[in-house]
Structure formats: C-alpha cells, structure tokens
Amino acid sequence: MTNPYLAALNTATKYPSIPTYHPLNPKNGGLLDETTTFTGDVILTEKVDGTNGRIVLFPDGDFFIGSREELLHARGDRVHNPALGIVEALEPLAARLQPRDEHRQILVFFLEVYGHKIGGAAKQYTGNGNVDYRLFDIACILPDVLDWDRAQISTWRDNGGQRFCNEATLQRAATAEGIEVTPRLATLDADALPAGIQETHDWLTAYLPATRVALDDTAGGQAEGIVLRTVDRSVIAKARFQDYARTLKRRANGR
C-alpha cells in the first residue's frame, strides 16, 4: 500500500490479536496449563469462523471497508478489491451507517463475514451458498493517530491504543444500526470459569454444542469456539474447540 495516508489508516484500524484462554505453547502449538485471568462478570459469545471484515466510518460519513489485513473498498469505488466477498457482504451496511460520535472520532465496526466459500468452515454454516455477518466489536480512533509513522501506530494498536466499546455501548450501537451481534451465550462470574484443559473442552461443549448462526438447515453446524470478555472489554480471550482437541490428543499420545 503505497499511499501513506491509506497505509496509516489500514494499520490503525486493524483488529488486534486475541490471546487464547490457555496460552499456546510456541514449541508445539499445544495449550499450556495456565489460564487468562478474569475478574467480575465475564460475557461468553460465539466465535464465528469466517473472515474478519471492518467498516471504517469517518465523522463526515465517508467509509472504507477492509479485510483483516488490507483496505478493500471506499465509498465511491475510490478503492475496490472484491477479495473474499467482504465488500459485497458489507457495502450495503456501510452505506447506511450514520456517524454518531460527538467527539469526531473514526469508528471501526469489526464484523465476522461467514458462509459460502468463506474459510475452511464454510459448510458448517451453509450448504446452500448463503453469506452473512455478525458484529463483534466497535473501536473509536482519534484522527491524529493517522499522522504518526506506521511503526508507532502498530505499537500503539498492539498495546491497547484503540478504544473499544463496552458491552452496553456495543449493544446500543448494534440496535440503533440494526446489526446482529455474535450470539451471547451466558454471563458468568469469573470464579465459575474452567481451569484445566479437559475441563475447558467439556465446558465448551456444554455451552456451545453447535453453532447458533447456521444460515440454513443444510449446514454442518459445528461451532468454532467461545470468546470470553469482561463487561468493559478490558480482558478478552478465545477458546477454540480445535486447540483443546489437539492438545488432549497430544497428551493422550504422551507428547
């Protein structure tokens, strides 16, 4: 991306990595025994297995649409890349979003686009070629950040510089804009969260035996996992079925 402004915007609005609930062992990809520390109420949401999309909304109503890694489209076709079907899925929503931030910040809507031919788990959500999206986060960014160099922006982003909406604000925005959010499964006290690897695998199965966002009756129905977050979103982690199944298999084989 040669345009410095677009490069800065892309860097500032990327979604930061979410750590796993049990940390990954860098040596073998298995899970370690310690867990992410949560306190207070913890909201459980379904982790949908598709592709990460984002809508970057400016105070004047201009917008960009991006994938996890790059900007794909801007209002008026100033930028256009049909990769992964993200633009086709999100452009109608982006065109009707209304700026709502009184402090003139840039809003970034993070959505999971999933379904037909999107990712390896597409058939778990549809057998009839359907595509949909679910909102999972909203961040606010001050325009001044775009004046920084990209290395500084990356460091700022990866160290929590983006200001994410808490659960109540996220729900209000979703309702106001008519956007469905990722399914809310439960709210638990942190003391009720599982600790061990086997315990967490069983816990995942109990709370999410099948996806709640299947798009038709021919979907396979297997869920990817659960995202855990505090109400204020100060702590967030993900727990994926495949990570626990892989770790348990490796341990059963003495590895």
Rank of each mutant, 00 (worst) to 15 (best):
D41P: 04
A186L: 03
A95Q: 09
G85W: 11
L71A: 05
T211Q: 04
G40D: 06
G196D: 00
G196F: 01
P194R: 12
Q124D: 04
D216Q: 14
P92K: 12
V131R: 13
H73S: 04
A173I: 14
A239G: 10
G53C: 06
I138L: 11
V42K: 03
V131D: 04
G53P: 06
F64K: 05
F164D: 02
E46N: 07
I141Y: 11
S17P: 00
Y15P: 08
T175P: 04
V213E: 00
L9A: 09
N166E: 12
F109Y: 14
R104P: 08
R212C: 12
F63D: 04
T218R: 15
N3A: 03
A219H: 00
C140S: 15
N253D: 15
G129N: 08
D77S: 12
G129T: 14
I43V: 14
D189C: 12
D132S: 15
D217Q: 15
L135M: 13
R157Y: 03
Q152H: 15
F110I: 09
E102S: 13
W148P: 05
A139Q: 06
D202F: 06
R75H: 04
L72Y: 02
L90Q: 08
T182E: 12
C165P: 03
L44W: 01
E34W: 09
D243E: 12
A206S: 09
A95F: 00
G220S: 11
A94P: 07
V181A: 06
A223F: 11
T230I: 03
G160Y: 05
T36K: 12
R233H: 07
T175I: 09
R104K: 07
T218G: 07
G30A: 14
G40V: 10
P23L: 10
R229L: 09
A168P: 09
G29N: 13
Y21E: 08
T169A: 12
W148F: 14
T36A: 14
K238T: 14
N128G: 15
W156V: 02
